[in-house]
């Protein structure tokens, strides 16, 4: 799998810094699951985080903090590695998802438009960013649209093209409010994407305005 499109540096940095909300975190984690290159960037940024932490000035701890912590040490059991669980009930039938997302309870695919199905990801935390899977059949042409917020798309299977380039499995498509999208599914198999989105979609053109109330994304 050749990955061409990666998340921008500031997103990878924010991921390593723990600054993303869960929805955004899921989108970046999905890309990282398939992208060794970006995993290394994040790993290096965690080292940068360590460097930043070490270089911070000290703030005096409350008196007796060390003694208080020391009295609690004996009661602590050693941690057990958080191994990868194989979820039987989670999202097991979609490739490329990070392990923790596979563990989320599954929903079923819902029809939202001709040749397009959507499957919400039910996150355990409230998040300002919605996350869903989108499955489009070959040859689907998505209506031109703009966003009021941002949209992160991770391609899991199949491929699509728009003015910004061609996107296949592992690629990350970052759209902000300025992006105009007319997306063409150009693979011979279904194109499944994980989408994290803030704000509302605005469909352009008269057809789009007629369809808008029907398409709840």
């Amino acid at each position: 799998m050749t990955i061409v499109h990666h998340p921008p540096d500031e997103l990878l940095t924010a991921f390593a810094a723990g600054m993303l909300d869960l929805g955004q975190h899921i989108a970046v984690a999905t890309h990282l699951t398939g992208c060794r290159h970006c995993r290394r960037v994040v790993h290096a940024m965690e080292h940068v985080g360590g460097g930043v932490l070490t270089a911070l000035p000290a703030t005096a701890m409350s008196p007796g903090a060390l003694a208080a912590v020391e009295t609690r040490l004996d009661g602590l059991a050693p941690a057990v590695a958080t191994g990868l669980r194989k979820a039987a009930t989670g999202i097991t039938d979609v490739p490329g998802l990070p392990p923790f997302v596979r563990d989320y309870p599954s929903s079923s695919w819902k029809w939202i438009a001709p040749k397009v199905h959507l499957r919400p990801i039910r996150m355990p935390e409230a998040s300002a960013t919605r996350v869903f899977l989108l499955k489009s059949q070959p040859g689907t042409k998505m209506i031109e649209h703009t966003h009021t917020g941002f949209e992160m798309t991770c391609i899991l299977t199949g491929s699509f093209a728009h003015a910004g380039g061609h996107f296949g499995p592992g690629d990350f498509d970052f759209g902000d409010g300025a992006t105009d999208h007319e997306v063409m599914i150009d693979s011979s198999e279904d194109c499944i994407c994980l989408v994290a989105m803030q704000g509302e979609l605005k469909l352009n053109g008269i057809i789009g305005r007629l369809l808008q109330p029907l398409i709840r994304m």
Binding site: L84, P99, E125
Partner: peptide, 21 residues
């Protein structure tokens, strides 16, 4: 929003089945 332990968050940063990068 949830009384999550940090273990859950550790899992959220586990994005790789393979060895360390």
């Amino acid at each position: 929003t949830r009384t999550a332990g940090t273990d859950d968050i550790d899992l959220e940063f586990q994005v790789d089945d393979g060895p360390s990068p």
